[in-house]
Design a protein around this nucleic acid. Sequence first.
DNA 1: ATTGGCACTCTAGCAACCGGAGTGCCAAAG
DNA 2: CTTTGGCACTCCGGTTGCTAGAGTGCCAAT
Lengths: 356, 356
Amino acid sequence: MSDTSKFPELSERAQHLLKVLVERYINGGQPVGSRALSREAGLSLSPATIRNIMADLEDCGLITSPHTSAGRLPTVSGYRFFIDSLLTVKPLGQETVRQFQRNLGNIDDPEDLLETASRMLSDMTHMAGLVTMPRREAIIFRMIEFLPLSEQRVLVILVTNAQEVQNRIIHPARRFSAAELTAVANYLNSVYAGKDLASIRESLLQELSSTRDQMDRELIHAAEIADLALQCDRKRRKKPFMLTGETNLMDFDELASKERLRILFSAFRQKEDMVHLLDRCLETSGVKIFIGEESGYQALDQCSLVTASYSIEDQAVGVLGVIGPTRMEYEHVIPLVDLTAKLLGAALNQKSLSPS
Amino acid sequence: MSDTSKFPELSERAQHLLKVLVERYINGGQPVGSRALSREAGLSLSPATIRNIMADLEDCGLITSPHTSAGRLPTVSGYRFFIDSLLTVKPLGQETVRQFQRNLGNIDDPEDLLETASRMLSDMTHMAGLVTMPRREAIIFRMIEFLPLSEQRVLVILVTNAQEVQNRIIHPARRFSAAELTAVANYLNSVYAGKDLASIRESLLQELSSTRDQMDRELIHAAEIADLALQCDRKRRKKPFMLTGETNLMDFDELASKERLRILFSAFRQKEDMVHLLDRCLETSGVKIFIGEESGYQALDQCSLVTASYSIEDQAVGVLGVIGPTRMEYEHVIPLVDLTAKLLGAALNQKSLSPS
DNA sequence: ATTGGCACTCTAGCAACCGGAGTGCCAAAG
DNA sequence: CTTTGGCACTCCGGTTGCTAGAGTGCCAAT
């Protein structure tokens, strides 16, 4: 799909003109005509010459005109080529970097951290920011607590990985005394701390089937742990990523048609397809960009998605990024997304690595 | 502000016409003319007569016409009078009630409960649903747990009231051993369970100042409890209510101007003013309605807000409702909001009352 | 009190028109 | 062979003028 084939037939000059055209279109939002380009390109060429070159660029499929007597604007391939080969990213100001660090530095709760990152992205870009929940291969068990709430209900507190805490209320099949519960907790904490949740579940099941005699206790425990393990997924399935500043997208003319917005927002709510798309970004390191239809996803037709993955302990666990109109200032957005991913990773790591 | 003065000068007939006019305008969205009204009212009056009456209604400030040769539509006072005196609410279907009960019945986590309620409201009405976090006079302490995460960090788990659980990470001034922490927790749990958080804090401070000698421990504990008490507020201040289905509002023509939507959504984000408005609904029992500018709040200009408070243990603790265009089907929305408030209260109560 | 009649007003929609912007092509110039 | 000026052509967006339709307000008649 993506034409990264560099278009070697294009002269330096043509490439430069394409660059200027895209930049100007991004800033102005209006199709760019030959006269404007001739003035702006600094090449002292007459509009007529520019027209010839623009015709070439159009033949290559890099630009089009919306109608006969309008200027040209980049196609998806045009954006792609621009981003891959022509773009000069604007480095971020020291002040911005420091502010980002400050904002992320004071937060303990990992979920707050994600939300803040997303909000920073949407605030800075005036577009929609998004951050997926971290997904780990292995979820490391750190400790568990049971608090009896009533006859029927037990509150489970599960601490995993970094300082991720999950609460859940379960309804055991039979009553447990407070003493029993602490006993179970102590057992689990002492035996399984530091191990991965899936393997704990397995090992519990195994243990259960081997010692059939004193089944009573063990069985119940195992069942509950299984429940817990499930919960991690459940929570993530319910809310696999967070999105902030969606409403910023209403302000862009190119997206503001009712129909378009409706489709877009309902896509955000559906989530499944979005998740699938974001998952594809997880493997790539560095910034990955989907332009318009490149995502293969109808709802994002006039949008671009700029993403980067963030890592904990050198393992990519999540993706963050920005959704906005295809006509966005990539040279600013890209470094911003890049930085945010790195800083979010760093912030999460810092908590994660603190010795237990 | 609100003209509840019943307009006794209005004939039965005029009132009936007003009713029909409002109903028709709500359904059709178009200004209603004399001919249409004459056909629809079932009074076998000629359009000319209707016109005379409409002129009266206009003199009373109940209806206006957007321009000379359009029909009439209700003013804010017109809606007010309609709602207060003319409206015949449509009772809800048994099936709906049962579905609502089912949806709310299976949820343990209070926060999920609130979100589900809000979502049901927005889904049913195709408008925006909203639910404030419950606010209690007294927050009842039920139990506390400390889990040491690292040298610097201690995870606090606080259970209050019903099954409301709050996690927080604190950074004590000095190290605590695991044993110390459990000791503190045990102490607090045994002494203060069932008491109200504010008074606990007070009593701790008092205790602290009376026994200056063995300050060390007590002081630290007191400080941390103070922290906790603060947190409850902090959380609510950050997210004082939840809003679902905001984007539904884009589908209404009367709100769909860019400017209007921008104002509305930024009002949702600001929250403070909204909170203030919602607080005013807390005291009222039953359904309370703000029509358009009645809220005194610029951003809700063309909107109405239908609210009801929900209670736990007979104490109104929160407000829920629906925001939509002034032109909404009140006869359906009102009973829906009413029901949801009652069921949400019931669901919360059920958890709350279960014996500890 | 109610009604039909009538003049009046305002809007929405449609067609016609025009200036501006930009293109494509061609022939001349470098 | 590239670059350039010239020119005819196209298309869009805004403006104008017009008409049909809907609805009103008022008046005189019932």
